[in-house]
């Protein structure tokens, strides 16, 4: 059996696609590639076969820093109980136009 270690050493890349001008790049998926040039080409072939994109980003997956899933509650807590940050908190102006 041929060693398949060859492509396992290829790093993982996360792919982001801008579907049309005026929109931001959105995560589309991931792929393995030996370097950035190949990653971009593979991303084009894999994720834009039907005009899904006008621009592609690839980012080494290892370079992404993410929040800890275990501290989810506490980490995002500060927004909770602060409904005054939303326009809907303010009700006195009901019926007053353009406000």
């Amino acid at each position: 059996m041929t060693s398949s270690a060859d492509s396992s050493s290829w790093p993982l890349w996360e792919v982001f696609i801008r579907s049309s001008r005026g929109l931001s790049h959105v995560h589309a998926g991931s792929l393995h590639a030996p370097d950035a040039t190949m990653a971009i080409r593979n991303a084009r072939d894999l994720y834009t076969r039907r005009n899904e994109g006008t621009s592609v980003w690839v980012v080494p997956a290892a370079a992404i820093m993410a929040s800890d899933p275990d501290s989810k509650g506490a980490y995002f807590e500060s927004a909770q109980g602060k409904s005054y940050r939303h326009a809907t908190y303010y009700t006195q102006s009901e019926g007053v136009k353009h406000l």
Partner: peptide, 20 residues
């Protein structure tokens, strides 16, 4: 297919290593 494509994958890895 996997065996016959091995050299392509190896070459791509070697090229990437060389570039870096």
């Amino acid at each position: 297919a996997r065996d016959e494509g091995a050299w392509v994958r190896e070459a791509a890895t070697a090229y990437a290593n060389r570039q870096s």
